[in-house]
């Protein structure tokens, strides 16, 4: 799944650690989500949407079909 978490985080001038603290997860989790290596659970995805005050579909997108 693709996402624009990094773009929204940088727009707020937050560090990865700051976002991790806001979400209650490890910094490595944020790094992996931003790199697209880790698809967050639905509760965590909603947590991210809440933190950025954006609907979830503005942050996460399915991979385009090949």
């Amino acid at each position: 799944m693709r996402n624009v978490v990094a773009e929204h985080r940088k727009a707020l001038e937050w560090s990865q650690q700051k976002l991790a603290d806001e979400l209650g997860v490890s910094r490595q989790t944020v790094i992996s989500i931003e790199r697209g290596k880790f698809d967050p659970s639905l509760p965590l995805a909603f947590g991210i949407a809440t933190v950025f005050e954006r609907p979830i579909e503005e942050l996460f997108f399915p991979e385009p079909p090949e």
Partner: peptide
């Protein structure tokens, strides 16, 4: 310690 360890990638 992370507040939600079960949601972290380390748990995966």
């Amino acid at each position: 310690a992370a507040e939600l360890p079960e949601e972290s990638i380390e748990s995966r």
